[in-house]
Design a protein around this nucleic acid. Sequence first.
RNA 1: CGGAGCGUAGCUCAGGUGGCAGAGCACGUGCCUUGGGAGCACGGGGUCGCAGGUUCAAGUCCUGCCGCUCCGACCA
Length: 563
Amino acid sequence: MRMSVYFAPTMKEAPAEAEVPSHKLLLRAGYIRKLASGIYEYLPLGLRVLRKIENIIRKYMDEAGALEVLLPILTPAELWQETGRWDVYGKELFRLKDRKNRDFALGPTHEETITDLVRKNIHSYKDLPKNFYQIQTKFRDEARPRYGLIRGREFIMKDAYSFDISEEMAVKSYEIMKETYHKIFSSLGLDYIMVEADVGAIGGKYSHEFVVKVPNGEAHIVYCEKCGYAANVETAKYEFELDKLPPEDEKPLEKVYTPNVSSVEDVAKFLNVDTKKIVKTLVYILSDGRKVAVLIRGDRELNETKLINYFKVLDCRLATSEELKEMNIVEGFVGPIGLNLPIYADISVKDLHNFVIGANEKDYHFINVNIPRDFEPIEFVDFSTARENDPCPVCKAPLKETTGLEVGHIFLLGTKYSEAMKAYFVDKDGKEKPIIMGCYGIGVSRLMAAAVEQSYDENGIIWPEEIAPFKLMILPLNIKDEKIKNKAEEIYKKALDLGIEVLIDDRNISAGAKFKDADLIGIPYRIVIGRKLKDGIIEFQKRTGEKEEISINDIDNLLEKLK
RNA sequence: CGGAGCGUAGCUCAGGUGGCAGAGCACGUGCCUUGGGAGCACGGGGUCGCAGGUUCAAGUCCUGCCGCUCCGACCA
């Protein structure tokens, strides 16, 4: 491709609205443009990257035996009503009406549609297993689109759905997808990690996330370098046995005056005790209306996902100041003794001695509290958010913490959708049974951003070779110099003949501008043809920084290597 | 959805107390230049987000709306 006729509008400055590196660079380098919040146009360069990513995904999905389909984006409300998600999905679901006033939704995901296809066309165990996938635009009316391609309202996703005759076979399908995802993400040239994940609202038995490691990512994960354990902090087990304080003799319970001292830090300072000996009492309202008190050691953070899962509710939240007042609870001095609420405790509170709690009275705390002498929780449960240096739940080595971007998520769904939508098959024994499902997503457009987040410098993008829009860029520094121009054209033609994806900057602009644009766009390899041509020398550069001067006689060898 | 901020040329932004719409970059033409976003000259480009109000006069003050971004909640 020739830059002189291409469309890659670069910008010296990033638009003020762009905050994160991938957003700024993809805009500046002419890969994308914004149409509206969370809605982007893919320019020629951007589309090439998308296609590269898609093709890698396709290759491994096909290899795994998955069958590519293309489902409608526009889906009738009836399907969503069947599974109840028309109501549950909420405002995130883009809804619209047709001319006859019928309700439709723009597909945010396609469990309903694919299950409908399967129930209408697959009836026997002989037709199973099946795995269908598609690469398609998805719509979610996000409350807060952000970070460019990372969280959009319209985005491109690969979604796949497996259908099996038994739990055992479904697990097998799941494992095949897990392997396939490993192949895909390593082929994309990305530094990623697979972690255990929460199943979330989509439901199901278990789930893994594939997370590209980037600084300041949205996903918080802990992992063990020793044994390979890795999990989202939402779901990572807290191994408290190794985090316990040494046993102590019980001291007599005492109420102490702690004027205006309520936060854990303040109480620790005021009473001169370790935050590990202070116990926070949090009052939560569950989505089914229940109110509970949850105790957790002062140095730990409560994990609401674990709370939701334990109480088997959809959601939970901390009680507001007003609600506490209505319950006659003294905010800032809440404690389990004399509290008229069901009391649950995080395992961090177990075997804790002589600790501090609120006295349910303004400006007072109890010290030297002991379980079960002074009160007894209903149950000790793992409610803690895992964090760096916690012992690994598998091998006890200290965990590492990192952040990343979730780019893939796989779920073993079970029969949630097949039962709701009556997707049954007749088994060998003649009995009708629900099909066991799995679903598997990859954020294609988000991957494009994730790749940039992982690999860039102050001058621009540094694409992994696997997904770069072009492999080679040729820079004739002075197009008015016939010799330079002709040599560049000659190399360009050779590269094309060899099937190398090559971009030549044949524009009549200054050398500096060509270098700046080339750095910004981030093509992995570069041949620079300038002054030294008269000595028979051209330069071969990698976007990562290495440069070497080579003789024009070695060009054929060089191109052969790039093939 | 809660909190904060912003909206003036394609982009980045300046335009105290109300008084002729601005700069740099980008764009066009010409000259010159070609190893890190060169220089000179000339030129084109605006519904100052929208609507209403106050005023002799509004980019500027007031009200409402819209859009965009950030923090949080949410997020298969």
